[in-house]
Computed example of a mutant assay.
Amino acid sequence: MESRGKICQANLTNVEDFIFLGLSDQPVLQGFLFGIFFVIYLSIIIENGLIILITKFDPVLQTPMYFFLGNFSFLEICYTSVTLPRMLQDLWTQNRHISLLSCAIQMCFFLILGVTECLLLAVMAYDRYVAICKPLYYPLIMNHKTCIQLVVSAWLGGMPVQVGQVYYIFSLLFCDSNKLDHVFCDIPPLLKLACGDTSLNEISVYADAFLFGVIPFLWILNSYIRIITTILKLPSATGRSKAFSTCSSHLIVVGLFFMSAAISYFHPKSNQSLGKGKILSLFYTIVTPMFNPMIYTLRNKDIIMAVRKLFFDKSY
């Protein structure tokens, strides 16, 4: 044990950076991937930026639901900007090296924004619960001050824990290899590179996932059980249809994000999960932020009208 510790410490001095293995080593395919990811990143910025713009300036959309949606769109831009620009740089330059400090910073922002997304989705579910289940009290409960407090709590709520989590991960000895089987710095591939017993780190990952993943998901699930129960009691078929349409978009987004993220983090040090986790991590960090604006806009008449006013009404 003592000799292994010395070997680890000796090898630790050689691990000054990590090398992303990425998705492919073929230069031709890397150029193709650069084009695909560049288009995706551009579409994420444009789509979510458009939602931020119309929810900010359209008088019809000055409600708590669209206030949260605007914040969610801003979060999606930040969330993808933590990983995608670096991936594009690596694909363009074919230099996949990243320093330990840069890796730690990337992981820290990635985890903080990931937790913010979980909490903000829970806040949005609570907003829909109050709007449908307690409509008479909605203006009183979801006043401007409460909305601000909920958004600030979502953005800052997980920050101390995630900073501690990153510090805990990078306190490990990385003595086996510096080749990171991923496209950005994430916990599962880093734990695979650590030498020694990482069981406590895995427990902390599970505890973190339960606190900021499972609990918000259960909150969302409970909110929608109450919402659906209330909707089914509505006497009007038109009222039921309208209520379902305002909630279905959020449910789709919740399902896509939580399912892919849960599968990725279910086995932090499993070889099998690392292969799938690389693809799934791209799904919930890149693909869903691209489709989320489409999901919200295609089923929302208010946003469609706001977009038409923005581009076709000169008096907007």
Rank of each mutant, 00 (worst) to 15 (best):
M305D: 15
A261P: 08
V152S: 07
L218N: 03
M107K: 04
S171Q: 15
V60T: 15
K278I: 06
L84Q: 02
C118S: 08
L140W: 10
F212G: 06
N271C: 01
R240W: 03
M259E: 11
Y296G: 09
I19E: 08
P139R: 08
E47M: 13
L156P: 01
C78A: 12
V161G: 00
S241T: 12
P160G: 04
I231T: 05
Q165V: 13
I105K: 04
L75P: 02
L121D: 02
N48H: 06
A125K: 04
G157N: 03
N222M: 13
T63L: 03
V253W: 01
I105E: 00
V15C: 07
V60F: 11
H250D: 08
E16N: 14
F67R: 04
N71Q: 12
M65W: 09
S81F: 01
W219V: 14
Y138V: 03
S264Q: 02
N222R: 14
L150C: 05
V307N: 06
W92A: 13
V15W: 02
G158H: 04
V123Y: 06
G31H: 11
P289D: 09
V161H: 08
A131M: 09
N48T: 05
S102M: 13
F266K: 00
E47S: 15
L91R: 01
S260R: 02
P139L: 10
F174R: 02
M259H: 05
R96D: 04
E117K: 11
T230F: 02
G196V: 09
F311D: 11
V307S: 07
K269P: 00
G255N: 13
L61H: 05
Y137K: 15
D197H: 05
A194N: 08
S236E: 03
S273Y: 01
F174N: 11
T93A: 00
A154E: 07
F34L: 12
A243I: 05
I231N: 01
K179C: 13
D127K: 04
G35Y: 01
V183W: 04
I19W: 01
I51V: 12
V163I: 15
F67Y: 07
A306K: 05
A261C: 03
R226D: 12
I169H: 00
Q94A: 10
I225T: 12
L211I: 11
F67G: 04
K6R: 15
K145N: 15
Y284S: 00
K269A: 14
K309S: 13
M1H: 12
F170L: 11
Y137H: 14
W219Q: 13
V253K: 03
L12T: 10
V15G: 03
S245Y: 07
L88Q: 02
L200D: 14
S248K: 13
I141G: 05
F283A: 11
K192A: 14
